[in-house]
């Protein structure tokens, strides 16, 4: 089980800021595939992962990263701070 968080337009497109996901996905990319199969909203949000960033337990990571031991996965667009 993993806590999945969404920010900015990803959050708006999916419609929830966070949710607990029951998954046995091995990598972030596998989790994305599972989420996209759920519902057209997820499919649309994850259509182009090159436009997205991912953080695992609050550290920036990549879509090929393994999920083993990870508690929190966050998806968001490139950051625009400063």
């Amino acid at each position: 089980m993993v806590e999945v968080l969404y920010f900015a337009w990803v959050r708006e497109r999916i419609g929830v800021p966070r949710e607990t996901v029951e998954t046995s996905a091995r990598t972030v990319a596998d989790l994305v595939t599972e989420l996209r199969a759920r519902d057209p909203r997820y499919d649309a949000a994850f259509a182009d992962t090159s436009a997205l960033r991912v953080a695992l337990d609050q550290d920036l990571s990549g879509f090929d990263a393994p999920l083993e031991g990870v508690r929190e996965v966050a998806f968001f667009p490139p950051m625009t701070g400063g």
Partner: peptide, 14 residues
């Protein structure tokens, strides 16, 4: 600091 805050700190502007 400014360059990194812009692209690596998780903020999003609307």
């Amino acid at each position: 600091l400014m360059d990194y805050l812009k692209s690596r700190a998780p903020f999003w502007k609307k």
